[in-house]
């Protein structure tokens, strides 16, 4: 529980324990190729509302990155653009199939391919060893015995959702309401099967602290809005509202002292005083 609280007060890189599972130091790190297509915003009129575990807090979609399609061992591959570095475009996707493959692997990234000489066929395959926070870690490349011929395909819309992952910790009141809780939100993508899937089994949820009165710390969503959860229950219900940036900032300012007090209570340490507010 303390970990989640501290995450909100530490630098963006995060401490070592917040990183992915016990994976060796990453040799090659790739990121999704940047897309500049405007995000399609959700309807603010759909808020506030009550949802349950697995319910959608916020959904949006955008045009995905460049894509390649190919055939490999009788299987159709759809590969999205990634960047290993500025000069090394990769195309990554799932290249496993068959009934024996675990559900959570079938739609996860398993490999990246690279056409190093630009002849329209990939000669190198990189296995994906880990994924966290959108970045993927690649194994050393292997040279394909037969280059993978591919062709460009239209970018697909990427559907993304922030789902409510339910409570992680907290005390349960007689009415089932949680106090001093930690709740989870999960960022997922729509799989080809229509289901929401984590980008990788290693993808970690985002933890949000909720306080004595049931209000949870706000979390920024795309499009300039911020969502605020409140009144989480032990059985997995929660109230979700969408706030504009000003209301969100006011809520965060109001909750900040509660967050500090809770960290100090749970760690037994005194945090340094906050920086002075700008002159008003």
């Amino acid at each position: 529980m303390i970990r989640a609280l501290c995450l909100l007060l530490t630098c963006s890189a995060g401490p070592a324990w917040a990183q992915a599972d016990s994976v060796a130091a990453p040799a090659l790190q790739a990121r999704p190729a940047q897309t500049t297509t405007p995000i399609i915003a959700p309807d603010p009129a759909a808020y506030p509302r009550d949802i349950e575990h697995g319910g959608s807090i916020f959904e949006f979609s955008y045009a995905g990155p460049d894509r390649r399609v190919a055939e490999r061992e009788g299987q159709s591959l759809s590969l999205d653009a990634y960047e290993l570095d500025a000069d090394t475009p990769l195309f990554c996707g799932s290249d496993v199939s068959g009934d024996a493959v675990a559900d959570d692997k079938r739609n996860a990234l398993t490999a990246c391919y690279r056409d190093a000489d630009g002849d329209g066929a990939a000669e190198l395959r990189y296995g994906v060893s880990a994924a966290a926070g959108g970045a993927i870690t690649l194994n050393a490349p292997e040279t394909l015995a037969t280059p993978l011929a591919w062709s460009a395909a239209p970018a697909r819309p990427v559907e993304v959702a922030i789902l409510y992952g339910g409570p992680t910790g907290g005390f349960v009141g007689e009415d089932g309401a949680l106090r001093d809780a930690i709740v989870e939100v999960i960022i997922v993508r729509r799989a080809e099967t229509g289901e929401w899937r984590k980008a990788s089994p290693a993808e970690r949820p985002i933890m949000l602290p909720c306080f004595e009165d049931g209000r949870c710390f706000p979390y920024p969503a795309p499009t300039g809005y911020v969502f605020a959860l409140s009144a989480p229950t032990v059985e997995g219900k929660v109230h979700v509202d969408l706030l504009d940036p000003l209301r969100a900032a006011l809520l965060a300012r109001e909750l900040q002292p509660l967050l500090r007090a809770r960290i100090e209570r749970e760690t037994g340490q005194t945090l340094p005083p906050p920086p002075p507010s700008p002159a008003t």
Partner: peptide, 10 residues
Amino acid sequence: VTPLPSQIQR
């Protein structure tokens, strides 16, 4: 003095 209060944990 105080038993475990009713709580949830993952």
